[in-house]
Simulated scan of single mutants.
Amino acid sequence: MIHTRDKTRRIMVGTVPVGGGAPVAVQSMTNTDTRDPAATLAQIEALAQAGCELVRCAVPDMEAALAFGPITQASPLPVIADVHFDPALAVVALENGAAALRINPGNIGGPSAVARVVDAAQAAGAPIRVGANSGSLPKEVLERCGGPGPAALVEAALGHVRLLEERGFDQIKVSLKSSSVLTTLEACRLWAQRSDYPQHLGVTEAGGLLAGAIKSAVGIGALLLEGIGDTFRVSLTADPVREVEAAWHILRACGLRERGVEIISCPTCGRTEIDLMGLLEKAEPELAKIEAPLTVAIMGCVVNGPGEAKHAQVGLAGGRGQGVIFAHGEVIKKVSEADLLDEFMKEVRRAAQTYSNHNSEQSEQ
């Protein structure tokens, strides 16, 4: 059962509402050189098409901070500046259109540097996300808490927040991250008990595509099901577009939001008489282009497939040399194996168009 969502404060990251009951927002981060606006914008566009709603860009030097000008002017998404150590970079990024900052107040350069950044964010109307990471916690916090556990993450985040609050700044989002799923879970739960600032979720340094997506799904998914979290990023050592794809799978599995196609497919068995894995591999990139929240089925058994997947709007099931296309469990046509995928995609696109037309009619009423 999904718990009632925590009622956190509402902030705005550009045009995207965060917290206060707003839909959980999907975030990613570019891995292009920010100093190359063309390459960065190309990746941001790809992320937007995949369903990303907030994007973060690294700001390693002044050239990257100045590049925020052309990037933010053309970006389809609010762009967050990721800044460490140098307050001037944060100020320039804000002056060049950054919708928000991600900083660590503990390493930005002392009280005067924090004040400079906060004043610039206040003037720009930009929120600040402060992050506590188990790999870079202050020495005094580690000593006081006995190591980089959940309590240390919370104490570090509270200390960062106080630095901003002392300047009268409250447009804050907080993240508490560890490469350990269990540490991340407990830290985020503790934070939710201590504060109503919105939370950004993530399991940091999660790993490659498979292992990282699994760790993120367990950690982020568990928190979302408990009503905790306002934005999140699935951090993968992979193309950032895959982060966004994984994020939407997590949201759908948690019953929170829908976008794109959910594929159900059987694990294959001795009755399978077609190349089901090959069909799935060919279908996935085509299905990824569809934004309508459809459920489709790719099944290996003509006998049981339609019945086992009768909740799918469209499905295919294969047999020896032929297969069937079905909708809501009812067979609508029989086709040769060679034509199975093409006929399946025609029906999927037809279902997506029907969904789009229905939504348009609803919005006009």
Rank of each mutant, 00 (worst) to 15 (best):
E166S: 05
E140P: 01
G149H: 13
G147D: 05
L163S: 03
K139E: 06
L158G: 00
E155H: 15
L142T: 03
G146D: 01
L142W: 01
E155N: 13
H160N: 08
E143C: 01
L153K: 10
V161C: 13
K139R: 06
K139N: 05
A156L: 15
E140Q: 10
G149V: 01
V154F: 15
Q171A: 14
E155C: 15
L142N: 02
A157K: 12
L163G: 02
E166Y: 08
L142D: 02
L163H: 04
G168I: 09
C145I: 04
L158K: 13
Q171S: 07
G147M: 04
V154Y: 14
G147F: 11
A151I: 14
E143V: 00
G149K: 09
L164I: 03
L164M: 02
E155K: 15
A156G: 12
E165N: 03
V161F: 11
A157S: 12
D170F: 11
V141W: 06
G146N: 02
H160V: 05
R167Q: 14
A156C: 15
G149Y: 05
P150N: 06
K139T: 05
L164S: 04
P150F: 12
L164T: 07
E143F: 02
V141M: 00
G159K: 10
A152P: 09
V154D: 09
D170G: 08
A157Y: 15
R167W: 10
L164W: 08
G147A: 06
A157C: 10
L142G: 00
V161S: 03
A157I: 14
A152S: 14
E143M: 05
A152N: 14
E166R: 02
P148G: 04
G159L: 13
G149R: 03
A151F: 06
Q171N: 10
V141P: 01
A156V: 15
E143R: 03
V161W: 12
G146Q: 04
L164C: 02
V141T: 09
K139D: 07
E166W: 01
G159F: 12
L153S: 11
R167M: 09
V141D: 02
L163R: 11
E155W: 15
E140L: 09
L153E: 06
R167L: 12
E143K: 03
L142F: 06
V141G: 03
E155F: 14
G159V: 11
R162K: 12
L153M: 11
G147Q: 07
D170V: 00
L164H: 05
G146P: 03
R144T: 02
L153G: 10
C145H: 14
G147K: 07
G168L: 06
H160D: 00
L153V: 12
E165S: 09
G168S: 09
A152R: 12
V141C: 00
L153R: 03
G159S: 10
G147V: 05
L163N: 04
A152C: 15
R162G: 11
V154S: 08
G159E: 08
K139C: 04
L164Q: 02
L163V: 03
G149S: 05
C145R: 11
A152F: 14
G168C: 07
G168P: 03
E165C: 05
H160S: 13
P138Y: 04
P148N: 05
E155D: 07
P150S: 11
E143I: 01
